[in-house]
Design a binder for these strands. Sequence first.
RNA 1: GUAGAUAUAGCUCAGCUGGUUAGAGCGUCGGAUUGUGAUUCCGAAGGUCGUGGGUUCGAGCCCCAUUAUUUACCCCA
Length: 466
Amino acid sequence: MSVQKPSIPKGTRDFGPAVVARRNYIFGVIRRVFEKFGYAPLETPTMENLSVLTGKYGDEGDQLLFKILNSGDFAKDVTPEDLASGSKKILPKVAEKGLRYDLTVPFARYVVMNRGTLTFPFKRYQIQPVWRADRPQRGRYREFYQCDADVVGTDSLLCEAEIVLMMSEVLNTLGLTEHTIKINHRRVLGAFYQALGSEGTETDLFVAIDKLDKIGQEGVTTELLERGFSAGAINTLFQLLTVEGGFAEKLERLQVAFTQAGVPTEADDQYKGLQELRQVQELLQGFGFTQFQHLEFDPTLARGLSYYTGCIFEIKINNVNMGSVSGGGRYDNLTGSFGLPGVSGVGFSFGVDRLYDCLDELNLFPEGAAAITRCLVANFDADSMTQMLPVLRQLREANVPSELYPESTKLAKQFKYADAKGIPYVLLQGSEERAANQFKLKDLRTGQEQQLSLAELIPLLTSQNQ
RNA sequence: GUAGAUAUAGCUCAGCUGGUUAGAGCGUCGGAUUGUGAUUCCGAAGGUCGUGGGUUCGAGCCCCAUUAUUUACCCCA
């Protein structure tokens, strides 16, 4: 009999008690903010039909879907001809379900299936894991949690403004004050494309622009030249991209630049992008938003997902080397592929796993976030164990998370246990204390001990500020 | 999918141009007059050096293969 070393699949993780406690802290902050803005929770199945998932994330996204082998004899419909013509032909016959890739598409599917019963505008949040068959690396996992908040059924830019407010509140509550909320508009990108004379393809241009901060002007230039853009067009592009100034100034200057470059106003009204960004800014001002130094209009922000049509968002934590911790945008026609056209939606998502890594690196988890038990009751001997049972019950009735050490061993061992678990208090009643009908309470953080009666004890342990 | 790096104790890592019996710190367990943790001192357990071949008198070290992990690219949270 061979003993095999246990392992877990690539890109997945176990979360130990301390990690779960800290993750729950992040989830709690996000959930409270979402609910404060009127978003209601939704959960959807881990599995979706592949017909729902495929084709929504582009070819690369389809590659990254985890597929679920059909139950039973999954290969019963596969013919020798299928095998000869390759995996693409076989796939629909052996797998009809897959793990969800994000939360937005299942949400769109849910909205379409329940359109008769939902009240619009429909605001929902969703905190669940998603799976991608990516190559794992720093800040990138195959199983990770997303925290989405989306509204469908309204075009109002109030939603965009409130997304900025929610992003800002979550980040500030978590202590991630060194952040930048980047915002752009798909129409602004479209205007760039027109300003360049509609050379090459739109997506090639967007993908290249998005990399500007990573590979620099030279890198983008070579990439665009390879994709068939002319040197003149690239030159125009960088003149447009390098507009300076604050939020409002950049909007003004781009407007002028677009007009000079001859971007037509009538066809698809490309100036609407700039107008909408301006309106979002005005709504935020009206609300009394004070964090404009963290809100940046970044004309280079493109984002990969092809379904965005309006404002797009992304959050960068400036003092940590980490990919974006949040992203989102407006999509005018997400439900269209499910047979419900013309429903506009806007939403965004936090990546909890990356937020965790940021908080961890910056040491921003609050003290005691990992500790569950508040008071360890020491166990001297069998007799004292019996004596302490009613005390334990009273502590728990007072909602003090507490535990009695289950064995009568040396106190040193029991203290070590409390210390390792981060338990702040140890309660002792040996023969001396029992004779006086008192307890000894030791605060492990300060090392101080005090003699107390049970009546004095409980208020001390229930007080919040200790 | 492309390119690189790494693999030695539970964890983090040393290990000299290839040379006797494999090293540390942390952790675990035990002890330092039997009622006190994190700080001190002493001791113990714990390793087929990822796996399989090869070169050599001799391999943790060199070569090949394989698997796993990891970083960057693509893409993305």
